[in-house]
Design a binder for these strands. Sequence first.
RNA 1: CGGGGCGUGGCGCAGCCUGGUAGCGCGCUUGUUUUGGGUACAAGAGGCCCCCGGUUCGAAUCCGGGCGCCCCGACCA
Length: 430
Amino acid sequence: MRLSKSLIPTLKETPAEAQIASHRLMLRAGMIRQMASGIYAWLPTGLRVLSKISQIVREEQDAIGAQELLMPTIQSADLWRESGRYDAYGKEMLRITDRHDRELLYGPTNEEMITAIVRDSTKSYRDLPQLAYHIQWKFRDEVRPRFGVLRGREFLMKDSYSFDLDYEGAVAVYKKTMLSYMRTFQRIGITAIPMRADTGQIGGDLSHEFHILAPTGESGVFYDAAFEAGDAIGVTDVDAFYDQVTTIYAATDEKHDTAVWDEIPEDRRREGRGIEVGQIFYFGKKYSEAMGFAVTGPDGQKIYPEMGSYGIGVSRLVGAIIEARHDEAGIIWPDAVAPFRAAILNLRQGDAVTDALCERLYAALGADALYDDREERAGAKFAEADLMGHPWQIIVGPRGAANGQVELKRRATGERFELSVEEALAKVQG
RNA sequence: CGGGGCGUGGCGCAGCCUGGUAGCGCGCUUGUUUUGGGUACAAGAGGCCCCCGGUUCGAAUCCGGGCGCCCCGACCA
């Protein structure tokens, strides 16, 4: 993308409403604009990040056999009356009526809907288990939206739902999902820690929250340093991984147990702050029974499926990643989710040599590069590249360009390399 | 939902107390300048002062009502 022609409205000064780092930086980097309290438009760079995160989430869901589908955002009130949650959910649910005065709602979650869909299309125990997910916009009418995208009212979430014949099956999916989540966060490039959690609105008796470590996190977290060295990607034994991950100590301040804490060797104790970016639940037959969903078993008896639901806050992750990775100058994107892998900074726009060199780099890098081809001072280009946080900056100035050299800067470390075009490309693409 | 604050060009703000019809910085446009860390000078463009009503000869300013947004707390993917 050529910056001179892009809709990337960066801001030199911070809008008054933004208090927290990720909110400030997302506005200043031109990723989002607020359209109403807790409701944001995602501009091109913001959307690119959202899409990259979604894609990683999608790949990891597919890898555990979850099937992607897409349910509507608007749901019928009647559906929620079946589970009894229409009255239970309270003011967080946005309720609307259509022209015929039919009661509808903008979905805050989809347990009822997926249960109805699976109920109406599976009749035999042979049709189970089922595991399905979608990545879809949700709406929860928060009393007090804040922190930008971290607590918006409209947010993008990956939610998946499982239906199993028995408890063992349900717990197996739960464990598999736990592993897939740890892989997902690791691939994104952040440390996430699973912690035992309450089940809240969803109900049930087994649940974990996933927290990203960030100094500005909303909850205090206590954990064993073993999490920092954890590797989920190479894991093949799901059960062993689950046992290991759930026995290492980790708790939010609400559930912190000082007795257990004191038994952990002192050099492994870590205290920090966390942002919740996901939660998984096993809740048994809560919805299948309430909504009359049973399949016929091998012996002709009804079996009410054991269910679970699993969420990752995709839009919240964008803010959470920034909270975890930024400095004075701006965002520091992990390679995997950066809107652009590299920025090409033309320090002398209009100079035949630097222009030609930049065009060559841009042609080689394609869509994953942002070419700063504006008529701007070098300083402005540096400042904006740091703000937007591209993992690599390829700096093309008249000094080096004359002998085919460019400067490559790594945003995360500040390292700089004087390289030939080929070497720079190899490094960026490698 | 309790408490506090704010609403004035795209962004950040001043002006309001002590009514006289709007100003500063940044950004934007044009020219010159500068050319490796948000350059300097000059000339421009751009405002229903959140909305409605009231007081007044006259309202951004005072009064009433409404709407929007932010912060703290309780609540939450």
